[in-house]
Design a protein around this nucleic acid. Structure first.
Lengths: 199, 199
DNA sequence: TGAAAACGGACTTGACTGGTCCGTTTTACC
DNA sequence: GGTAAAACGGACCAGTCAAGTCCGTTTTCA
């Protein structure tokens, strides 16, 4: 969050001012997760329990706040991928990351929007890093024979983002665990060489 | 479309009026597919090559038009499912329907919105019918041993709607055939009994 | 050929959102 | 306690966008 507060250089601000920035940032995190990247500044202020005036006195703009919040979270995801790459077992590393990744996307609309390109914010460098890690994770697992060889690494991010269910389909409501059920099937599909063709 | 035109009971309308309703309905079909259920009335009128005034003289409301268009298309999907159920091979029936279903959703934003519950229009009866067909298709294939038994039929609509890729993930653009690549993996995952657990 | 029907699109209305401004309240230092 | 600077809240402003209306003009057809 230092991305945002760097501007405050003089003597330290009054207690209420500090408290309110913290509240706003926390509220923004939650709101982005629950509502998505389209949360309004008014909504964030409301959730933070402060007036809209305070929002704009403490923060440069709605966009700056959301950008900072998202960039933060994306960097955490990249860190997860790095950890997965350090796992000596390529399949387990991949699978664990896949679970974290899908879990995060499934529980945060905002992350999902950001990774889906639905936000005009400056997160390109994080995305580039993430693409790079995906490629490494998939190719490493393929070389180890743990992921079928008839797909390209780019298929995998699409498959994983696919696993996140819309909260409704044909009128059915997705439970909070539907993504796990989906993921199991997809991992089983990735798992081995192409099925005996049985058309 | 008769849902819409039923109101016109008196002597038959002037030629230009008839032509314009047809144009509007056709334009609405295409626009719903390309843009989604949020197409504006103005956009539909523009595509139809008529003024907005004509739109509202011929049609009760934007909502009525979109509702009729969507209900029509959903009924076609139900018909596809019925055909699949008449296929003597439960797996082939299921698989062919899955391809049609996903293909339709992938190429029409509007269908996708509607099946995803993203539209406040009266299509409940079509959805009920569709749910019913899904259950039959899945359970029939499970009884025949063609779909693994450790999932419930409701998982399948979620899995299939999952297969439709967002047009972008982590900055990658989905090609028009990405859904086929995804579907292949998912069908392979559905295909057999749970993988030898290899954690 | 002329009256009824239909047309186009400017305009109205209403919702919504990012951001500003100013009268009031809080803080912190004496 | 007193007071001045800092901070606060929220009414308000400006811009946008979409649904739907209205009326002067054009088209149809008996």
């Amino acid at each position: 969050m230092e991305r945002l507060l760097a501007a405050e250089l003089g003597q330290r601000p009054r207690a209420d001012a500090q408290r309110n920035v913290r509240r706003l940032v926390d509220a923004a995190r939650k709101a982005v997760a629950e509502v998505g990247v389209d949360v309004t500044a008014h909504e964030i202020a409301r959730r933070a329990g402060v007036g809209i005036g305070t929002f704009y006195r403490r923060l440069p703009s709605r966009e700056a706040l959301l950008g900072a919040v998202l960039a933060d979270t994306l960097d955490e995801i990249v860190a997860l991928a790095d950890r997965a790459l350090r796992n000596p077992d390529p399949w387990r590393g991949f699978r664990d990351f896949a679970e974290d990744y899908v879990g995060l996307r499934a529980t945060s609309c905002g992350i999902n929007d950001a990774l889906g390109g639905q936000c005009p914010l400056e997160i390109d460098s994080s995305l580039t890093a993430l693409r790079d890690r995906f490629r490494q994770l998939v190719e490493r697992a393929q070389e180890a024979g743990a992921i079928r060889s008839d797909l390209v690494w780019q298929d995998v991010p699409f498959l994983l983002s696919s696993v996140i269910p819309a909260d409704r389909t044909i009128g059915l409501r997705a439970g909070p665990e539907q993504w796990r059920r989906n993921l199991r099937i997809v991992l089983d599909g990735l798992d081995r060489e192409p099925a005996r063709s049985r058309d």
